[in-house]
Simulated scan of single mutants.
Amino acid sequence: MIDHTGVTASDFAASSKFYDAAFAAMNGSKLVTIPLEYTGGVQVAGYGRDRPVFWISEGAAQSPPVHVAFSARSHAEVDAFYAAAIEAGGRDNGAPGPRPHYHADYYGAFVRDPDGNNIEAVCHLPE
Rank of each mutant, 00 (worst) to 15 (best):
M1K: 12
M1A: 14
M1R: 12
I2G: 05
I2V: 10
D3A: 10
H4M: 03
T5L: 13
T5E: 04
V7R: 00
V7C: 04
V7S: 06
V7K: 00
T8S: 13
A9H: 01
S10N: 14
D11R: 02
D11Q: 02
F12P: 12
A14N: 03
A14T: 00
S16G: 12
F18H: 04
D20S: 02
A21M: 02
A21E: 02
A21Y: 05
A21Q: 10
A22G: 11
F23G: 02
A25S: 10
M26E: 11
N27G: 13
G28E: 06
G28W: 00
K30Q: 15
K30M: 12
K30V: 09
K30P: 00
V32K: 11
V32Q: 13
P35M: 08
L36A: 15
L36T: 14
E37K: 12
E37L: 12
Y38W: 13
Y38T: 10
G40K: 06
G40I: 09
G40A: 06
Q43E: 15
Q43P: 07
Q43M: 14
V44I: 15
V44N: 13
V44K: 14
Y47N: 07
R51G: 07
R51T: 15
R51S: 15
P52E: 10
V53K: 13
W55E: 07
W55Q: 06
S57L: 15
S57H: 15
E58Q: 14
E58G: 10
E58A: 14
G59P: 12
G59R: 01
A60S: 09
A60D: 15
A61I: 01
Q62K: 07
S63F: 11
P64I: 03
P65D: 05
P65N: 02
V66H: 06
V68G: 04
V68W: 02
A69D: 02
A69V: 03
S71D: 15
A72E: 01
A72N: 03
S74T: 14
S74C: 06
A76D: 10
A76R: 09
A76I: 08
A76V: 06
V78K: 00
V78N: 04
D79A: 08
A80R: 08
A80N: 10
Y82N: 03
Y82R: 05
A83K: 12
A83S: 10
A84M: 01
A85V: 05
I86P: 01
E87T: 15
E87A: 14
E87R: 11
A88S: 07
A88V: 01
A88P: 12
G90A: 07
R91N: 10
G94N: 00
A95Q: 11
P96Q: 02
P96C: 06
R99T: 01
P100W: 01
P100F: 00
H101P: 08
Y106R: 11
Y107V: 04
G108L: 07
A109W: 01
F110H: 05
V111G: 06
V111S: 04
R112A: 07
R112W: 08
D113K: 00
P114N: 08
N117I: 06
I119W: 00
I119T: 02
I119D: 03
I119M: 09
A121D: 00
V122S: 09
H124V: 11
E127P: 07
